[in-house]
């Protein structure tokens, strides 16, 4: 028994140094996009530049909150150089908290200005869109909702699921509605949605899975989740909402340089690399079907081509202003 304990401790002690090595020429990225998709890109960067990338990933299960909480708590002594968010909402909040350094990447010059902060605090690329996903066994073609505002109609009572509109892309979507529809109209929509027995679930993927498994007929989710279900040959189809109205919300990945990060120069090099057209093209070809913001790049399939979608016109500065009060309203009135 004693020998086993001594041997175990000895092995552990030997293993520890391998876990804590820190090379000098490095860059630290806090990355909300899954390692499966971002890992090869960062590996290429390492090979090309010789700069070691240390990545910290998050899980959508906690809605990027792990990384954001950490960045905020580390604000006085930042450990990260770059923040790669798989959407835009938290990036806007953190910009407001003064956590980013301005950096206008040369490689991002052909990304449309709509998707870039005018002062260079963040840059968008490779987007997802919010879509309506429905189960083809449970919803007839003639009753597929064409607008998210349709969700309040009696025909959809108890048949729609959405993620909690206080976290993730659903929170950003709620704030976008406040910007686009106005305060009174948005509040009315959410109150009526609640009255129509809308199911509130933990996340977009869970909502998509419920639709795929026939537990619920319709949900509001993201294109990557919808594509995942379609690739699994589930009986689902997706539609871009509000194509004859306000348009579908498009949420780009966003990248920002952390103020006071330990390797600022390497951080800028990494941002330049990630924002290159080649990188956006690689992301577009993955099963997450990220939609390139550069019109000249090929999309995953025609279904995921931004040029063929009516996009919701959104002022990201206004959206940022609405994020907090939108969450407060949702928490106080919709989730009560």
């Amino acid at each position: 028994m004693k020998n086993i304990l001594i041997a175990t401790v000895a092995i552990m002690v030997l293993l520890i140094p391998a876990c804590g090595k820190t090379p000098n020429n490095e860059v630290v990225i806090y990355n909300a996009l899954d390692e499966v998709f971002s890992g090869p890109i960062l590996k290429d960067f390492e090979t090309t530049t010789g700069i070691k990338v240390k990545m910290l990933t998050d899980t959508e299960a906690v809605k990027t909150v792990g990384l954001v909480t950490r960045l905020i708590e580390e604000k006085d002594n930042p450990q990260a150089d770059v923040f790669w968010n798989n959407e835009i909402g938290w990036t806007l909040v953190m910009k407001q908290k003064g956590m980013f350094e301005s950096y206008q990447a040369e490689s991002a010059r052909n990304i449309p200005d709509t998707y870039k902060d005018k002062n260079g605090f963040w840059t968008g690329f490779a987007a997802r869109a919010r879509v309506i996903l429905y189960n083809t066994s449970l919803v007839q073609e003639n009753e597929v909702p064409q607008s998210i505002l349709d969700f309040t109609k009696p025909i959809y009572k108890g048949r729609v699921a959405i993620a909690r509109p206080v976290v993730g892309t659903m929170a950003t979507h709620a704030a976008a509605l406040f910007v686009n529809l106005g305060e009174a109209e948005t509040k009315k929509f959410f109150i009526e949605l609640k009255a129509n027995d809308c199911k509130i679930v933990a996340g977009n993927m869970m909502a998509a899975k419920m639709v795929a498994n026939g537990e619920i007929a319709i949900c509001l989710t993201d294109t990557d989740d919808a594509n995942g279900m379609m690739l699994d040959n589930k009986p689902v189809k997706m539609v871009y909402p509000d194509q004859s109205g306000m348009g579908a919300l498009v949420l780009p990945n966003s990248i920002a340089l952390i103020k006071g990060g330990p390797n600022q120069e390497n951080g800028k090099k990494l941002i330049e690399y990630i924002l290159k057209a080649e990188t956006e093209q690689k992301l577009a070809k993955l099963p997450s079907a990220q939609m390139p913001l550069r019109a000249e790049l090929a999309s995953y399939s025609p279904m995921f081509n931004l040029a063929s979608i009516k996009i919701m016109a959104i002022d990201y500065n206004k959206l940022a202003d609405w994020l907090e009060s939108s969450k407060k309203f949702i928490y106080d009135e919709f989730l009560k």
């Binding site: 899954d34 390692e35 499966v36 990933t57 998050d58 899980t59 959508e60 299960a61 906690v62 996340g203 993927m205 899975k209 989740d225 995942g228 279900m229 699994d232 997450s288």
Partner: peptide, 8 residues
Amino acid sequence: YSLYHFNK
């Protein structure tokens, strides 16, 4: 948790 979300 991460891979679970991404339907892996």
